[in-house]
Nucleic acid binder design. Structure first.
Length: 511
DNA sequence: ATAGGGTTAG
């Protein structure tokens, strides 16, 4: 046990010094906070005002100042500063400063080192994180549940799911540390994100029986994951169970289930759930409303979506860009491009800035309507509004060009997008291949199949079905059959959707 | 008295 008197002496010393000396730092900072401190002569040690830091450079400057201060600021102050840099997501900067601290002999403690471990983890270098763990022992510090929790998160971030699980279990089995709610959440969230929902589910049940009860975040995470895995009824059961355990769901919990139910068009259940939310005196937020608007739109139920928007406005929740994007998409789906355009045009009047997604959605709409000219006009307009293209926008435009049979334009566009550092993804290649096949350029399509493979984009079942379909339409049934056999070797269970085009052609041929 | 933790869009 370290002497608490030492701590007091240290504190008293720091308070006295900083009370009498004008910190050079105050020159760097806005004076507001310092004034209020001056009026409290007996206030505890004021520390350093970090509120004036808005950018990394400010933080690095302050760090240099702190190095020059005498007496040197405590490890707590340095730790606060490092943490601030981490909050700005400047992990490598934080690591560099930590390195400097070590070289200059500035003291660090378990808090500082945990921040450093976190930095390495967030940079996907959990191995370095474990190296820092080693230095804990060298320095005589005990890693605690926070340190271990950070490392577990790092393992998950590095896709070392099994290692994470093993490490966690080892900590428990050897009673190296008592888990807390944050640690359990880290494990449960990591498992869910890695697709191990059922393991997470079991763990949740297990910890439900211990003294360290999973909190609302844990339940919400598993419920959300169950919904995404299409196990909505299990999610509903778990929702009931958490309430039974005395843990109140939040609107986030409910919104996950609402979305899960919407995905199955279980409108009656959605309605019941909305009623339950109201009974629990929880008000729907913009996200939940958007889930509803989007769900109705995706089903082509634009009238219902309009009603939801109406209700949200009655409740003083302003539709946002996401709401508008959903409505635009909905109108497009039912062929009402003019209404979609109206929503788009109304956005700026509502104080909403169309996002690149708004543009993509509308571009897609015009392409589907065969109005590539207007689509192209919008495409050119987006960067003028300060928006950056993303791959999806370009893929949509690419599709539009090929739909109109403009293969040469499509191929040029495909080249141009790469010149603009937009890396084609699987969807882009599939779109390109489909465009070429539709326009009878099978050989060209196959050359891009090889290009995509060379660039590390693995063709999926859609890619093959596009090619098989293209070959069939072109009368090259033998090649199609060979490709189909390759497909069977790669995918054990191709769905009917993919087999069907081939089947149709073979049947036709045999007749 | 400084560190680790969930939800929404084409």
């Amino acid at each position: 046990m370290r002497s608490s008197t030492m701590v007091l002496v240290h504190r008293g010393f720091a308070a006295q010094k900083s009370g009498t000396l004008a910190h050079p730092i105050s020159l760097l900072c806005s004076s507001f906070h310092n004034h209020s401190r001056k009026n409290r002569p007996f206030s505890p040690k004021p520390g350093i005002d970090f509120s004036c830091i808005h950018e990394v450079d400010d933080a690095v400057c302050l760090f240099r100042e702190m190095l020059r201060m005498r007496p040197q600021p405590s490890v707590v102050q340095f730790t606060k500063l490092l943490n601030g840099i981490v909050k700005m997501k400047q992990y490598s900067v934080a690591l560099k400063l930590f390195d400097e601290m070590l070289q200059l002999g500035v003291p660090v403690d378990e808090y500082t080192m945990t921040i450093v471990i976190n930095c390495y983890c967030l940079l996907n270098r959990v191995d370095f994180g474990f190296a820092i763990l080693g230095s804990f022992f060298k320095r005589g510090y005990e890693p605690n549940v926070t340190t271990f929790g950070t490392l577990i998160k790092g393992l998950f971030l590095d896709d070392k799911v099994i290692d994470a699980e093993k490490f966690f279990k080892k900590l428990l089995a050897r009673k190296i540390c008592e888990p807390n709610q944050a640690m359990i959440l880290t494990v449960i969230n990591g498992l869910c994100k890695a697709g191990h929902t059922l393991t997470a589910y079991d763990l949740l049940g297990l910890f439900g029986k211990t003294s360290c009860k999973p909190d609302v975040f844990c339940y919400t995470t598993v419920i959300d994951s169950l919904c995404k895995d299409r196990m909505v009824d299990d999610a509903l059961q778990l929702l009931a169970k958490m309430i039974e355990q005395g843990i109140s769901p939040t609107i986030v919990t409910y919104s996950s289930v609402v979305k899960g139910l919407c995905n199955f068009s279980r409108w009656k259940d959605v309605k019941d759930l909305i009623k339950e939310i109201a009974d629990h005196k929880i008000s729907l937020d913009v996200i939940t409303f958007n889930i509803l608007v989007d769900a109705f739109c995706m089903e082509g139920m634009v009238k219902e979506a309009e009603d939801v928007v109406e209700i949200m406005m009655q409740r003083n929740i302003s539709p946002d860009t996401v709401t508008c994007n959903a409505m635009i998409d909905g109108y497009i789906l039912v062929g009402q491009i003019d209404k979609a355009r109206k929503v788009f045009d109304s956005m700026s009047g509502r104080g909403l800035k169309p996002s690149i997604i708004s543009y993509s959605t509308l571009i897609n709409g015009y392409c589907k309507k065969g109005n590539v000219e207007e689509a192209w006009r919008l495409f050119l307009e987006a960067p003028c509004k300060g928006l950056d293209y993303d791959v999806a926008t370009c893929t949509t435009m690419l599709q539009g060009l090929f739909r109109e049979g403009r293969c040469a334009d499509g191929l040029k566009f495909f080249k141009d997008m790469q010149a603009h550092q937009l890396i084609p993804n699987l969807v882009t290649y599939n779109t390109l291949l489909k465009g070429l096949c539709m326009n009878k350029q099978i050989a060209e399509a196959f050359s891009f199949l090889h290009i995509m493979e060379d660039r590390g984009v693995s063709p999926d079942i859609t890619t093959y079905s596009i090619l098989i379909h293209g070959l069939c339409k072109d009368g090259k049934l033998e090649i199609a059959r060979n490709l189909f056999n390759t497909l069977l070797q790669k995918v054990c269970n191709p769905t009917f959707k993919y087999i069907q085009p081939l089947l149709v052609h073979f049947v036709k041929k045999d007749l």
